[in-house]
Design a binder for these strands. Structure first.
Lengths: 355, 355
DNA sequence: CTTATCTTCGTAAACGTTTACGATGATTTC
DNA sequence: GAAATCATCGTAAACGTTTACGAAGATAAG
């Protein structure tokens, strides 16, 4: 056998039998000279196994390349080692950022993630997706629900495993608890920054009110204004796109209604309006101050570099996972939201006195 | 026993007992008055079951809300209904775009996706990730490997299920076949556009050569220049970041070496160098033409709106899935790569005669 | 009417684990 | 030295399916 030119794929100790099958717990047992029960014990590091045999079994496992069959484990324990993520397919900055971060954290905690996304109209497809995730065997589900309509679908859905929703400012229900970053605070920070710079005429180029994010960012802006005793500024509802912001800003220019300062609901929004201003000789920040939201990649190299609000997706993901896993294990976990931070760059400046 | 106050664990058709357990194939069988074998047959729509009983069983399934236990199925059949995606955790535009598109297409084809990401150093962690994916029960794996080093790790890894790599311009091996968009063509398109505009001094602000994308984009630029009989332009290797491009461009300005035109390896790169130019009174496109690559969101609202190259991630994902599923089923599939398109906006203009 | 052929269905075994329980030998206690 | 305790290990059953095979009744062929 040693003389064979083609080395067979042998993973028993007997080199002549070419076993194509993946090694099982029984293979380990027979090679190690113990019973499968013992192997199972060391696998789950249960007590009642001597240090010596444990060592030996571990060695055999390594030698023959044994790997636990997840399906079998899941079947008997009905507990799982993966968590599901449900998102709408939106390629927007926030959802994608949280998705990536979520996957990352899950992996570090030893969970695989299976993600599935749904598209409008939500209603039934959300329930279907939840079901699919469920019988994939996930132990819990995190749904990224930026859109209010989708969150509603989740609330109305039923699911055996714990469901957590990441939705800015949404409230928890008995079935699904929610968690999010404190975006209202973020919006507040942005607006306060403008106020401290001496601006009094602060408009808001808002995001879509179909989104939680659009709602709470607006709310934060309003609150900051109110707290400072300022009159409410101009509010415009958009759709997060640069295009909308561009065209809307153009309109404002035409009507000579350009505000002193604007809090843009997203960096993309800021991008659009800055271009509209630039094309009309209105300079940022000299003529109008703007602060964005998101801190997308490259926003530090916009013209001008954008003052904006950064969310900590990693922290968000970490906390969410903590909360979900806690729920899966029946623990109770602290749920104070993450605070975003203001990052000051060049797009907002001291107000000039000439009104 | 019927008089017991505490209802026993009964999920028969008696409606007063609240069934807490998930219904199994046996529950369906007993309610429908058939054996579990029959139920299994209708589940897998096998022959040998009369139309009448099939109807009845189907009805019962709906009634009691039965759902197939994937773990049990996977255990006995060892075939699966999900596909694995391995990516590096990079939050860059390309990888994220393909990831999202992949998930989307997979879902439409009835597959769940479980994604796992690895980080540097790749070597062992890639093998580990592949293994994890494998015993999650995926039927095939797509790896998004923008970085050459990661691809190498994949080539050296072993895996029972078919593995497909999405890596621009990487070659297939017996174990893992690769697929990608024709980015070299994209780079060619960009450069040719500049050439047709009359530019002869065309620099390339490159991406990292650790990335396949960096390599093939450079290659496309070189080829276009060569085909046009032009001398090779200035080449600089970067890291995709606006920051690098900014600082490098600044350097060029200081040394009075600003080229006539530049092909930037990414839109983010373009962003950085445009800002550097702007700060020094060098106008784009009046003084220097630039074209980017990626068509990131908002690039149509840069100052100026960016001429760039767009990849079709959806098409890419569709084809990749086609190829992978083909491999899983033992079919052979056409593998001609997707072609990116040039999107012309305002950042590149006719060359002026004053050299 | 008997026998052979279909149709339709039920049954047993297997997939690879975990868990509860019982068995064995060694060690301690009286 | 016998009984009790302890540490270590083996065994059986179960998890919810699928698959191969066999059995019963119905139908067709002789």
């Amino acid at each position: 056998m040693a003389g064979a030119t083609v080395p067979r794929e042998a993973n028993e100790r007997l080199p002549d039998a070419p076993p194509r099958r993946k090694p099982t717990i029984n293979d380990v047992a027979s090679v190690a000279g113990v019973s499968f029960g013992t192997v199972s014990r060391v696998l789950n590091d249960a007590p009642d196994v001597s240090a010596a045999t444990r060592q030996r079994v571990l060695q055999v496992i390594k030698d023959i390349g044994y790997r636990r069959n997840r399906a079998a484990t899941a079947l008997v324990t009905s507990r799982s080692t993966s968590i599901g993520i449900l998102s709408d397919g939106s390629p927007r900055f926030g959802p994608v950022g949280t998705l990536m971060a979520l996957e990352n954290i899950a992996r570090r905690k030893g969970y695989a993630t299976t993600v599935i996304s749904v598209e409008r109209p939500y209603g039934e497809s959300v329930q279907a997706a939840l079901d699919t995730l469920d019988d994939t065997g996930v132990g819990g589900i995190i749904v990224i629900a930026p859109v209010v309509e989708m969150a509603a679908a989740v609330w109305n859905a039923s699911c055996r495993v714990p469901v957590e929703m990441i939705a800015a400012g949404a409230s928890s229900t008995p079935n699904v608890f929610s968690y999010s970053e404190n975006q209202e605070l973020g919006a507040r920070l942005a607006t306060q920054h403008l106020i401290e710079l001496g601006h009094t005429d602060i408009a808001h180029f808002g995001g879509s009110l179909d989104w939680f994010d659009g709602r709470v960012r607006k709310r934060g802006w309003e609150a900051a204004l109110r707290d400072a005793g300022l009159a409410p500024g101009l509010y415009l509802e958009g759709d997060w796109s640069p295009r909308w912001a561009y065209e809307t800003a153009l309109q404002l220019v035409r009507e000579h209604k350009v505000p002193q300062a604007v809090f843009a609901a997203s960096d993309h929004t800021a991008l659009g309006l800055i271009r509209a201003f630039a094309e009309n000789g209105i300079r940022v920040p000299e003529d109008v101050s703007v602060v964005g939201f998101d801190d997308i990649e490259g926003s530090d190299y916009f013209l001008p570099p954008l003052t904006t609000v950064r969310q900590d997706f990693t922290a968000l993901a970490l906390m969410s996972m903590e909360v979900l896993i806690g729920a899966m294990e029946g623990r109770e976990v602290d749920r104070t939201p993450i605070a975003p931070t203001l990052v000051v760059r060049d797009s907002a400046r001291q107000a000039t006195s000439h009104t």
